[in-house]
């Protein structure tokens, strides 16, 4: 699954560690999500969406659709 986290993070001048701190996961998890190696759970996706004030669909793109 692709996502726009890296772009949104850059827009807000936020590091991976800052984002990880906000959503209470490790920096490695944010890195794996950004690279598309790991798909977050729905609660974590909601937390990220809420932080960036976007909907989940605006951040995560399902390539199979």
């Amino acid at each position: 699954m692709k996502n726009r986290i890296k772009v949104l993070r850059a827009e807000q001048n936020m590091t991976q560690a800052d984002l990880a701190n906000h959503v209470e996961v490790s920096r490695q998890t944010i890195n794996a999500i950004e690279k598309g190696k790991f798909d977050p759970s729905l609660p974590l996706a909601f937390k990220i969406a809420k932080l960036f004030e976007r909907t989940i669909e605006e951040i995560f793109i399902d390539e199979s659709l």
Binding site: E24, V25, S26, Q28, T29, A32, F38, P40, S41, L44
Partner: peptide, 8 residues
Amino acid sequence: NLDELQKK
């Protein structure tokens, strides 16, 4: 208390 990736 691990996060979801660490649990996986």
